[in-house]
Nucleic acid binder design. Structure first.
Lengths: 255, 255
DNA sequence: CGGATTCTTGACGAGAATCAAGAGTTGTGG
DNA sequence: CCACAACTCTTGATTCTCGTCAAGAATCCG
């Protein structure tokens, strides 16, 4: 079985066009996952179930700024992030974004499709990197679940993990100062979005995005980042933060 | 009696040896639920499944201040609140409590028992009224689930509902002012804990508890409550708030 | 070279936490 | 029944964090 590598555009990639609710293109070969792929959802399933899932999946390429699902819209697909990164947030009435978390390969979304009635997405998800997802439409989901009741276990585990993570974030926002939150977001983002560079881990985020993730104003974020730059703990560029070592930021209270 | 806030001293020990693994009382007769009982968990199940569940359940009486599960402890039972009220919160390192929500009859807890590995409770739950629960131990849960895979659906729906509710609370805490949060907590608490009285809905909560639920200091809560009392929107007594009409408080932004 | 983003810094103010002090309420024991 | 202690509530003064606004600097891009 041949596995696709983590490359941005796989062979199947370039012919695919992708928009929120666009035409799904082609069936996924059975071994569509990169080696070492980890997923809370899939890991709870048997090989047989995974295989059935993958056979029914359709692959879609995603591009930065693309909205993959929008809260309130009818939930029509369950999907798994294969490569790339996404941001999960909730919209406020005045159009602002309330950040909830980053999504990384292996994360599964759109459970509202099979769990909620009426099926409406709970959150908005936006791609922030090139990547690809595996998607299942409502009918296929239902068929799969009735054929493989074990899938519910994967859903359970994933929902439980999200609940856990959200409680943690809630605790963080209620109990920690802006500076502590920012440090934590830096560590988190470095781990989930960062890539190695000559001078340390590079995180391609604008101050504005970091501020969003840390739940503070752009100015407060900038101030602390500037301070840390003066102290030499990190270096800033336009749209990028370079951290030589995370250790200084990690010792901040965990919750 | 210690109330919601002080958690350092565990003096509730003497009145009832509670916590996770206390003596279960007696087998439940098949028709153990009050008429009109509503439960997100049970409502997702077939009559056959519900009947099997109830037969396997054990009933336990709960008393105010009793800790029904404690975060971090091994999760050993799944349980359903039959009557009474509970508070769900998370503890901080310094022993304070971060309120998450009220629990009312029909709510189900302890999913960690069957979903998480290792099985550890995620949150702490404390009874705030006399009441009773139906509980299932780990072995029975597993037996029931393997016999009735449909149970997972109930778990799914319940977890999803909790996730939804938690996102809402998170949004509320991030975007609304103290006054708006307090108004909302009043409405919520009146609906879930309140009972009718001669002058309106009575909510038996101390200022301290209301403040906890609204995520603000005791003083800020007191100030707004006093102001509303001067305006005539409510009347306060020691450990109780009487609201003639909720309509004034309901018009606050929903999120 | 504009023009558009993105970042920086300072000044200011609103909201809410903290601290302090006391008033009102409830319960208990003598 | 009173006195006292414990608890709960109230209010004002103070402080602090952080958001908002303004103005400009740095960077990128066609």
């Amino acid at each position: 079985m041949r596995s696709l590598l983590m490359s941005k555009d796989s062979d199947s990639a370039e012919k695919l066009i992708c928009v929120g609710d666009m035409p799904l293109k082609k069936r996924v070969p059975f071994a569509a996952l990169p080696p070492g792929f980890q997923s809370t959802f899939l890991d709870a399933l048997t090989p047989r179930e995974i295989s059935a899932l993958l056979k029914a999946a359709r692959s879609v390429i995603i591009s930065p700024h693309e909205v993959l699902q929008q809260e309130g819209e009818p939930a029509e697909r369950l999907w798994l992030l294969r490569t790339g990164r996404v941001a999960v947030y909730r919209l406020t009435q005045d159009g602002n974004k309330l950040f909830l978390r980053w999504g990384v390969p292996g994360d599964t979304f759109g459970f509202a499709t099979i769990v909620r009635t009426p099926a409406q997405y709970l959150v908005t998800i936006e791609a922030i990197q090139e990547g690809s997802i595996l998607a299942w439409n409502l009918a296929d989901c239902q068929a799969l679940i009735s054929r493989y009741p074990g899938l519910s276990k994967g859903v359970n585990r994933t929902l439980s993990k999200y609940l856990d993570g959200l409680i943690d974030r809630f605790v963080m926002c209620q109990l920690q100062s802006a500076e502590e939150r920012l440090a934590r977001v830096l560590v988190e983002s470095a781990g989930q979005l960062g890539h190695a560079g000559p001078e340390g881990i590079e995180v391609d985020l604008k101050n504005e995005e970091v501020a969003l993730a840390a739940h503070m104003s752009l100015f407060t974020a900038t101030r602390h980042l500037s301070k840390w730059q003066r102290t030499g703990l990190l270096k800033k560029h336009r749209g990028k933060i370079v951290v030589p070592s995370l250790s200084c930021f990690e010792k901040i209270p965990a919750d």
